[in-house]
Design a protein around this nucleic acid. Structure first.
Lengths: 343, 343
DNA sequence: TGTTAGCACTCATAACAACCGAGTGCTAAT
DNA sequence: ATTAGCACTCGGTTGTTATGAGTGCTAACA
C-alpha cells in the first residue's frame, strides 16, 4: 500500500505525463501548488516508487515516466473509485432523428466517440443471432437470378443474390418460400440452421421437386457467416499522438486494424462493465504499446455489444473511462426503449 | 523531340529509379549491357535532358531522378504505344463462385488489384441510378416501426427503417405499398423522385388518408442520398513505399482517404479509357506526391464505374497500366454478360 | 566532330568530439 | 524527516572532419 505522499506524487507524475508525453522531473513537480515539499524529497519518493515498480526512467538521469504497473495502480485506485455511474447525454449528439436504424446508431456512436477523445474507437454491433426472422422473401430478377431477402424483428436486413438452378421451376420456388415463411417466422438466427435441417427439410421433401438442390442453395444463401458488424472511428486520430514517430509502428497498427477478425477477437468481452487493458496486458502483440478500454452494452435480454477506445498507454484514463461508462449506460437504455417499442 | 540515345538514357534512369528509389548516376548506367557509350557521354546526355526538364538533381552533385515531365514523356512515348488492348484473365482470381453479387465483385476486384500491385486501389461501383425498381416492400416490425425494402433489377437491395406515424393505419400502409409497386416497377432510380412527385402523389391523394405525412416519410426513406459505392483496397500498401518516411505525409494521405466525397470526386472521370495523372497534375493537393491511374468500365449502356490505383510518382507505370487496362476490359465484359442474363 | 579519360569540385552522410542542461543520487546540515 | 548542495550521468545538439558517390569541364583522341 502506498502512503498518501507517494500516491500524490504518482498521480502528479501520471497526470503530467499524460498531458506532455515527456518524462517528469522532480523540480517540475516541486513547482506545483499542491506540492508542499521540496524537489529533493520528491526525488526520494520517486526512487521508492521506482523500486516498487510504479515508475521508470528512460535513462539513468532522466525524469520518470509511469510504468504499466503505475498506470494500473492509478486506474484501479485513483480513477475507478471516483467514477460515478452516471450519464452525460452523449446520446443527444448521436440521435438526431426521431428514429434511427440500429446500425446507423452504432456507426454514429463510433464517430462521436473518436471525435470526443481523439483516440480510435471501435464498436461491435449487437449480436444479431438472437434476433428473430420476421420475413423471408425471394425476388426473382430474371429467369436465372433472384435475390433472397431476410428481415429480422430488429430491422436488420440480409440479402443474397443467387442463380436459380434450371431444375427448379417457378412454382417450386414459390412453394418453397411459402414453406419457409410459415416455418421460419419467429425463429432466431441462431436456431435457423437447426430448424432448417429438421422441420423445413422434411416438408420440402414432400412438396418441392428436386428439394435437395433447392435446399443446398437456400443453405448457402443464409447460413453463410453472419459477421458481427464492426465500426471503427477515427483511425487517423492515433497518428496525432507523439508516440507515433516511427513508420514501423504505424504499419503494424494499421495492418492489425485491417484484419477484422483480429479486431473482433480483441473486443469479445465475456465480462460486463468497463475493462481496462494496459500495454502488455493485451495479449495481441501489435497493440502492446496501447491501452484498450472496453465497455459492453446490452440489447434486450442477452444480446451484447462492445464499445472500445484504443489509444497510447499514456491515455486520458479518467476522461475516457467516464465517457465510455456513460455511453454504455445510455446506449443500453436507448436500445432498451427501442426494443420495448419493437417487441 | 528526343534522340534515340536521349530516350534510351531517360528510359534507363526511370526504370532504375522506379526500382530503387535512389538517384541514378552516370557510372551505374554505363555498366548496363544495353549501354555502349561511356559514363562521360552519359553525363553530357543527362545534362541535356536536365536542361530540357526531363530530369532533376536532388543536389548539385547527386545523380539524376526523373521529373514529373520526365515521367509524363515516358508514359506517353514509351509505355502508351506498347500497351496492347488485351486481357490477362485477372477476373478468374475474382470470380470464383458461379454467381456473385455485383457489389462483392467490385469489392473483391479492389482487393486483388491492390495485392497484385502493392499500391492502393480505389474502385467506384457502377452508378446505380440507371438500375430499375423491381420491387418495393414494406415489412412492419411492430406497431410503430417498419422497414422499407427496395430491390432493383441489378440485385441491389436498399433498406431503411422508419417509424410509422400514428396517423397512418395498417390498411393505408398496404394501399400505399400497392400503389407504389404498381407505379414504380421498372422506373430507374434516377427517375424515382420525379415519378414519385407526379404520378404517385396524385394517386395517393385519392386513396390514402393523410397522404402528405405518408409521402414525406416515403420520400425521406428513399430519396436520401444513394451514395456511389466506394471500395478501397490495400490502404496500408502505400506505407511500404520508402517515400513515406515522415509521419506528416502519412497523416495528410490518410485524412484525405477518410473523406469519401473527396475520393469520389477525385475519380469521377468524364473521359473513357486510361488516364494517368502524375504528381502535380493532380488538382488535389494531398496527392501531389502521388500518381493516379484511372480506368473506366462499362455496365450496360450508360453506366460507368471507375477503377484506380494510387501510388508514388515513382510508380511501375508499365505494369499498372497494363493491368488496369486489362481489368477494365474484363470487368466490362463480365458485367455485360451478367447484364444480358439479367435483362 | 562525337567520344572519352582525367581531374577538381560539390555535397549528403556518417562518425566523432565537445558541450550543454535537465535531472539524478548521495551527503551533510537543519 | 526534510532539504540544500554538489558531483555525476546521459541524451541531445552543434561543430568538425572524413568519405565517397557523383558531377562538370577540359583536353586528348579516333
Amino acid at each position: 500500500m502506498l502512503t498518501n505522499r507517494q500516491l500524490l506524487v504518482l498521480q502528479v507524475i501520471i497526470d503530467d505525463f499524460i498531458d506532455s508525453a515527456h518524462p517528469v522531473g522532480s523540480r517540475a513537480i516541486s513547482k506545483r501548488k499542491d506540492i508542499t515539499f521540496s524537489a529533493a524529497t520528491i526525488r526520494n519518493v520517486m526512487a521508492d516508487l521506482e523500486d516498487m515498480g510504479f515508475l521508470e526512467k528512460t535513462h539513468s538521469s532522466s525524469g520518470r515516466i509511469p510504468s504499466e504497473k503505475g498506470y494500473r495502480y492509478y486506474v484501479d485506485h485513483v480513477i475507478a473509485p471516483s467514477i460515478q455511474n452516471g450519464k452525460l447525454d452523449i446520446m443527444q449528439h448521436i440521435i438526431q432523428d426521431e428514429f434511427i436504424e440500429m446500425e446507423k446508431l452504432v456507426q454514429k456512436s463510433a464517430e462521436v466517440l473518436s471525435d470526443l477523445t481523439s483516440y480510435t474507437s471501435i464498436i461491435l454491433g449487437p449480436e444479431i443471432y438472437e434476433t428473430k426472422v420476421k420475413q423471408l422473401q425471394i425476388v426473382p430478377l430474371s429467369k436465372q437470378t433472384a435475390v433472397a431477402i431476410l428481415v429480422t424483428d430488429s430491422g436488420h436486413v440480409e440479402h443474397h443474390s443467387f442463380t436459380i438452378p434450371v431444375e427448379i421451376n417457378a412454382s417450386d420456388l414459390e412453394k418453397m418460400v411459402n414453406i419457409l415463411n410459415e416455418r421460419l417466422q419467429g425463429v432466431s438466427l441462431a436456431r435457423l440452421p437447426e430448424v432448417l435441417n429438421t422441420e423445413v427439410l422434411s416438408l420440402m421433401k414432400i412438396y418441392v421437386n428436386d428439394f435437395e438442390k433447392a435446399y443446398d442453395y437456400l443453405k448457402s444463401a443464409f447460413f453463410s457467416e453472419q459477421p458481427t458488424k464492426l465500426y471503427i472511428g477515427g483511425k487517423t486520430n492515433i497518428l496525432m499522438q507523439p508516440e507515433f514517430k516511427d513508420v514501423e509502428k504505424i504499419r503494424s497498427f494499421y495492418s492489425m486494424m485491417e484484419d477484422e477478425d483480429e479486431v473482433v477477437n480483441l473486443l469479445k468481452n465475456p465480462q460486463h462493465g468497463i475493462r481496462v487493458s494496459i500495454g502488455h496486458e493485451n495479449k495481441l502483440e501489435a497493440i502492446q504499446d496501447f491501452s484498450l478500454i472496453t465497455a459492453s452494452y446490452q440489447l434486450g435480454e442477452n444480446q451484447t455489444g462492445t464499445i472500445a477506445l484504443l489509444g497510447p498507454t499514456r491515455m486520458e484514463y479518467r476522461k475516457v473511462i467516464t465517457l465510455l461508462n456513460a455511453l454504455s449506460n445510455e446506449m443500453t437504455e436507448a436500445l432498451y426503449l427501442w426494443y420495448k417499442n419493437n417487441g
